[in-house]
Simulated scan of single mutants.
Amino acid sequence: MRSLKTLLLGTALAAGTSLSAMAVPLTGSFDFIGQFRAADSTGANVPFGSATAVDFCGNTGGQGCDGSGGTFPGTGAFLVTQSSPGPNNLGVSTGNVGTIQDVIFDPFTGPVTDFFTVAGLSFDLANLTFNKFDLPSGGQTISFIALSGSGTLKRDGFDDTSATFSFTGQTDGQNTVGTFSFSGASAAVPGAVPEPASLALFGAGLLGLGLARRRKAKIDA
């Protein structure tokens, strides 16, 4: 019976420690909307076709853009419109209001720490690509700015997690103020791998298991 207790203790120690040290990545997605102005690198409002930067407005009603008299680059606001169902530990809910930093996308000179923050979640922007185009619609031209990139999601109590995003801004082709939408792609979820200390303890547990078997064999003999 003493040998059996040793075996169970070694196994429990290894499993419990390994689980506590496994990674806890962030996962999930959410969408948000807001207002912005097409801008150049100084923050001056320009037509979409000439834009090299996005100047986010201070609220979802189109007011408080830095290019209208504030300091550029600055920060704007956005409203969360949807949070993905299913596995989601981002802590972001529909109706949350967050802040987002103005960004120069041509050329992008990041990374940008805390590119956006909402409900205790933040995103560091590491790289950024862009596309600008016009589409005819109902007798007028709709201008678009599309941004996409990747970076790192961060939240207290969770591991920093790689994530991607996409952004689409549009206007009627006449104004430099338009609406934008953001779609946060699901965060990458790496496989949970025990850390070196856990591996060592797991090995100790296996060693204890082996010693218990040898001891039992001697007693049986």
Rank of each mutant, 00 (worst) to 15 (best):
T6G: 10
L7S: 06
L8V: 12
L8F: 03
T11A: 15
G16Y: 01
T17E: 05
T17Q: 07
S18I: 09
L19F: 07
S20M: 13
A21R: 11
M22K: 08
V24N: 14
V24S: 11
D31P: 08
D31T: 15
D31W: 11
G34I: 08
G34M: 02
Q35A: 15
F36G: 07
F36S: 06
A39M: 02
D40L: 05
S41G: 15
G43R: 00
A44Y: 03
V46W: 03
P47W: 00
F48E: 10
S50D: 11
A53Y: 01
V54G: 03
V54M: 03
F56H: 05
G58W: 09
G61V: 13
G62M: 10
C65D: 04
D66G: 14
S68A: 15
G76V: 10
A77D: 07
A77F: 06
F78T: 07
F78H: 03
V80T: 04
P85K: 06
P87C: 07
N89S: 05
G91M: 07
G91S: 07
S93T: 13
T94G: 11
T94V: 14
N96M: 08
G98W: 02
G98C: 02
T99G: 12
D102C: 09
V103L: 03
T109L: 13
G110D: 00
G110P: 00
P111H: 00
P111N: 00
V112D: 00
T113H: 06
F115I: 03
F116G: 04
A119G: 05
A119S: 06
L121M: 02
F123I: 07
L125W: 01
N127M: 08
L128N: 01
F130C: 13
K132L: 12
K132E: 10
L135T: 12
G139W: 04
Q140M: 13
I145F: 03
I145M: 01
S148G: 11
S150R: 06
S150V: 11
G151N: 00
L153M: 10
G157N: 10
T161D: 01
T164H: 09
T164N: 10
F167A: 04
T168L: 15
G173F: 04
T176M: 11
T176Y: 10
V177H: 04
V177N: 09
T179A: 15
S181L: 14
F182M: 01
S183L: 15
G184C: 09
A185Q: 15
S186G: 15
G191K: 13
G191M: 13
G191Q: 13
A192M: 06
V193M: 12
P194A: 04
P194L: 01
E195C: 09
P196D: 00
A200R: 11
F202E: 05
F202K: 08
G203T: 14
L207W: 02
L211N: 03
A212H: 01
A212C: 00
R213D: 04
R213A: 11
R213H: 05
R214S: 06
R215H: 05
R215C: 03
D220K: 13
